[in-house]
């Protein structure tokens, strides 16, 4: 292979026609990459083509097409559906803030070790057990119909309020477990280092453990919030007119299911980018080592947290 005399013969500038030369290998690689792309394209085309053919030629297709794919109903219902989606966004944003706060309190309570805090630990544990065990729809039903149904003076009846409370109660239980896993993942040597400087246990938690734990669980937290975003439709059961309720209203008026397709599209448009962002964040953490320090600082910088220069206050 490298029989040619000069030192250059074996290096980058070697004869391009020689088998095993850099140029020859490049050509081979390009050819095989082109072939792979072509094969992938063809197989995708064939598979989807067959699927579409089966669906379009099924006996019920004309009926399904009429009731799910009616362009006029799609366009006429879309503005109302998008407007109703603003209610979902409100539900999502308000309960997300409440969930983040309540879940953190629950996680810290469950992670405490002091004997005097046993009752707090017990309550937090029971809370998490209950709200993770109950189907979300039941909690929404019980709160949304049960509490206003008591007819107590001064108790609000706005279903939007109970929707927020129910979503917060349900999701706090899940999110607190995510936080708790984050807290548990911080090596005890971090707490030891903090305590050895004279920091109290709460100070060590506040300044050393929690900041690292929270940065580490940002991707799973985002994952839970994708779930929350979708579960906002559940509150339609207690009469909040949000996107799903809105599409039901249109459906009831037109006897056509196209509004549901529009709703599905709205969720896809909003949720897929968020899911991609989460995946990107996870991949980024993994790529850069994913160690304790690595993950923490990357998530911090990914979230746009700027770092000052030299010894800035």
């Amino acid at each position: 292979m490298t029989a040619q005399g000069g030192p250059d013969a074996t290096s980058r500038g070697g004869p391009a026609s020689l088998p095993g030369s850099r140029a020859q290998r490049r050509r081979d690689e390009r050819t095989s990459a082109l072939r792979s792309t072509l094969v992938a394209f063809l197989s995708t085309f064939v598979v989807f083509g067959v699927l579409v053919y089966i669906v379009v030629n099924s006996p019920g297709w004309p009926a399904v097409q009429a009731s799910f794919f009616a362009p006029d109903i799609f366009w006429s219902s879309l503005p109302g559906i998008v407007a109703a989606f603003l209610v979902n966004i409100q539900l999502f944003l308000i309960s997300e803030v409440l969930i983040l706060a309540l879940a953190l309190v629950l996680a810290v309570a469950r992670s405490s070790t002091a004997p005097v805090l046993f009752p707090v630990r017990l309550m937090a544990t029971v809370y998490v057990d209950i709200f993770r065990a109950l189907p979300g729809v039941l909690v929404i039903y019980i709160l949304g119909f049960g509490i206003p149904g008591l007819n107590l003076p001064g108790v609000p009846t706005d279903p939007f309020l109970y929707a927020i409370v129910a979503l917060t109660l349900i999701y706090s239980a899940y999110v607190s477990e995510v936080y708790r896993a984050g807290i548990a993942s911080i090596h005890p040597s971090q707490t030891a280092a903090a305590r050895s400087l004279g920091l109290s246990q709460p100070q060590a938690l506040r300044y050393v453990v929690l900041p690292q734990a929270i940065r580490r669980v940002v991707p799973p937290l985002l994952n839970d919030f994708i779930g929350l975003q979708k579960d906002t439709v559940l509150v339609s059961y207690i009469g909040v007119v949000e996107i799903f309720r809105q599409s039901q209203i249109v459906e009831a008026g037109t006897f056509n299911f196209t509004p549901y397709l529009a709703t599905a599209l709205v969720f896809l448009v909003v949720t897929i980018p968020l899911a991609r962002f989460t995946d990107w964040l996870v991949a980024r953490q993994a790529r850069r080592g994913g160690g304790a320090s690595g993950a923490a600082s990357q998530v911090a910088s990914a979230l746009g947290r700027s770092r000052g220069g030299q010894a800035a206050p």
Binding site: S189, Q190, A194, P211, Q212, R215, A292, S293, S297
Partner: peptide
């Protein structure tokens, strides 16, 4: 400590 235990964040 042997393993430094600096606060990475």
């Amino acid at each position: 400590f042997q393993s430094f235990n600096l606060f990475p964040h």
